[in-house]
Computed example of a mutant assay.
Amino acid sequence: MAAPDKIAAVEEITNRFREAHASVVTEYQGLSVAKLTQLRRDLGSDASFRVAKNTLVKRAAENAGVPGLDDLLAGPTAITFIQGEAVDAAKALKKFAKENPGLSIKGGYMDGRALSIAEIEQLADLESREVLLARLAGAMKANLSKAASLFNQPASQVARLAQALADKKVEGGESAPAEVEAESAPAEATADGDSAES
């Protein structure tokens, strides 16, 4: 019969697998407690780093319906359970592993399937959600500005064309339409120094 502490550990890891949007399996060797604490800080509040025995993780993964991890569970194992943005956690793990050779990424699980090391690294190379949203907002703003400019152009072109036609008629000896004369009269009076009231 299994010890109560092992049963509790399996239950806790099972719940973490079920609640996580993604999980990453890592192997750690020769990392101090201070380094592991730093990694936990780097991961932020949306991810948790859990050191666990392979037999307990296997049982928990099976209970949670998470396939494809058995081959990854050898040596000192730690699982990163990601509740938030998977890209941010993958970036933090990749950066930490680069600076600390004692940590190596072995694979993971996301969206109902196992992930290879290469897929996790690709995930880490993506822009974060916030950056993508900011870029999208910038692109949308630029497109709206272009659209507003395009919508304003026809109106100003029509006004310039109407003025050019009126000017051409005046040059040809025809009288300008009353609207054009009314618009141009105050401007001419002001240019001569006369007030509109005199």
Score class of each variant (00 low, 15 high):
residue 4 P to L: 02
residue 4 P to W: 04
residue 5 D to K: 07
residue 5 D to G: 04
residue 6 K to W: 08
residue 6 K to Q: 15
residue 8 A to H: 06
residue 10 V to Q: 12
residue 14 T to S: 07
residue 15 N to T: 14
residue 16 R to M: 06
residue 17 F to E: 02
residue 17 F to T: 00
residue 18 R to S: 12
residue 20 A to I: 04
residue 22 A to V: 00
residue 23 S to I: 02
residue 24 V to H: 01
residue 25 V to C: 02
residue 28 Y to S: 01
residue 31 L to N: 08
residue 31 L to D: 12
residue 32 S to H: 13
residue 35 K to I: 06
residue 38 Q to E: 05
residue 39 L to T: 14
residue 40 R to F: 15
residue 41 R to V: 11
residue 47 A to N: 07
residue 47 A to S: 01
residue 48 S to N: 09
residue 50 R to K: 07
residue 51 V to P: 06
residue 52 A to M: 10
residue 53 K to N: 01
residue 53 K to M: 00
residue 54 N to A: 11
residue 62 E to H: 02
residue 63 N to Y: 14
residue 64 A to K: 01
residue 66 V to A: 03
residue 68 G to R: 06
residue 69 L to F: 10
residue 73 L to K: 00
residue 74 A to Y: 04
residue 76 P to S: 11
residue 76 P to K: 14
residue 78 A to G: 09
residue 78 A to R: 14
residue 78 A to H: 15
residue 82 I to H: 06
residue 83 Q to V: 14
residue 83 Q to E: 11
residue 83 Q to D: 12
residue 86 A to V: 06
residue 86 A to K: 01
residue 87 V to I: 15
residue 87 V to C: 04
residue 89 A to F: 05
residue 90 A to H: 07
residue 92 A to I: 07
residue 93 L to H: 09
residue 94 K to C: 05
residue 95 K to N: 12
residue 100 N to I: 10
residue 101 P to A: 02
residue 106 K to P: 14
residue 109 Y to S: 02
residue 110 M to H: 03
residue 112 G to T: 03
residue 113 R to L: 00
residue 118 A to Q: 04
residue 119 E to F: 00
residue 121 E to T: 08
residue 123 L to V: 00
residue 124 A to S: 14
residue 126 L to T: 14
residue 128 S to C: 10
residue 129 R to K: 08
residue 129 R to E: 09
residue 130 E to S: 05
residue 130 E to I: 11
residue 130 E to K: 07
residue 131 V to H: 14
residue 132 L to I: 04
residue 133 L to I: 15
residue 137 A to C: 05
residue 137 A to K: 05
residue 138 G to M: 14
residue 139 A to P: 07
residue 140 M to E: 13
residue 142 A to M: 03
residue 142 A to I: 02
residue 142 A to L: 03
residue 146 K to W: 10
residue 152 N to H: 01
residue 152 N to P: 00
residue 153 Q to I: 08
residue 155 A to M: 05
residue 156 S to Q: 02
residue 157 Q to I: 13
residue 157 Q to M: 10
residue 159 A to M: 10
residue 159 A to H: 07
residue 160 R to K: 11
residue 161 L to A: 11
residue 163 Q to H: 08
residue 164 A to Q: 09
residue 165 L to W: 13
residue 166 A to C: 07
residue 167 D to S: 13
residue 167 D to T: 12
residue 168 K to P: 10
residue 169 K to Q: 10
residue 169 K to H: 11
residue 170 V to C: 08
residue 171 E to D: 14
residue 175 S to Q: 13
residue 175 S to L: 14
residue 179 E to M: 00
residue 181 E to M: 05
residue 183 E to T: 06
residue 184 S to Q: 11
residue 184 S to T: 15
residue 185 A to D: 00
residue 190 T to M: 14
residue 191 A to K: 12
residue 192 D to I: 08
residue 192 D to E: 10
